[in-house]
């Protein structure tokens, strides 16, 4: 067909998109977004580092941080990382039910993480350790709540993906979206490593 189409066809037309693997440039673009998000967290970490001993007469980290709660939250987020990994494996094997199951587990763990974090914030504010108390607490709430908001939006995205999977199944676009969400979710876990190490553990040691 290539030879006889020479005369009467327009010179150039695209029958379909170039068939890359699902994603292509989107995945790299989303990765660049994540790197810029890392810069936001870097500035928040730097702010916290500068202000971390400006107690203004308020409580110090050792007095207010409850390490068992932080350990619980860290465990929840870590397990949610591996369950999202299982969702990705099920996706690549083309198993819709398995993908949905592991995504639901991941979403519930994410919700538990946000719940525990809100409980922790509630306890702190109840004890009088509010963001207005000192520069240290302002920086602490800004950094940790920014991470918590990211997780919250990750859960919203995850619920949207569950609806899409239910309606359309594992087509290439959904695979691309799930891969982006996977990067987002694991990225938040990496940020949390920084939070629990530099904010909580080093704060209690101080």
């Amino acid at each position: 067909m290539g030879t006889k189409a020479m005369g009467d066809n327009p010179g150039f037309y695209v029958l379909e998109e170039e068939h890359h693997e699902p994603g292509g440039a989107t995945l790299l673009g989303f990765w660049i977004y994540l790197m810029s998000d890392a810069l936001i967290f870097a500035t928040l970490f730097a702010t916290y580092g500068v202000l971390s001993s400006a107690y203004a007469g308020g409580p110090s980290p050792r007095e207010i941080f409850e390490l068992p709660i932080v350990a619980l939250n860290t465990a929840i987020l870590l397990v949610s990382s591996i369950t999202y990994g299982f969702a990705m494996i099920a996706m690549h094997e083309g198993k819709l039910r398995g993908t949905q199951f592991w995504l639901v587990v991941t979403g519930l763990l994410g919700a538990a993480f946000v719940g525990v974090e809100l409980y922790e914030f509630g306890t702190l504010i109840h004890e009088g350790a509010t963001p207005q108390t000192s520069a240290f607490l302002s920086a602490f709430f800004t950094l940790v709540a920014t991470h918590g908001l990211h997780v919250t939006f990750g859960i919203v995205w995850l619920v949207v993906m569950l609806v899409q999977l239910n309606q359309r199944g594992l087509h290439p676009e959904n695979q691309r979206r799930l891969t982006c969400l996977s990067m987002f979710w694991h990225f938040l876990d990496v940020v949390w490593i920084g939070v629990f190490t530099f904010v909580y553990l080093l704060g209690v040691l101080r």
Binding site: L39, A46, V50
Partner: peptide, 13 residues
Amino acid sequence: TGVIVLIVISGSL
């Protein structure tokens, strides 16, 4: 990004 993050944090401190 890692280099920038290090510069931002250690430079600020």
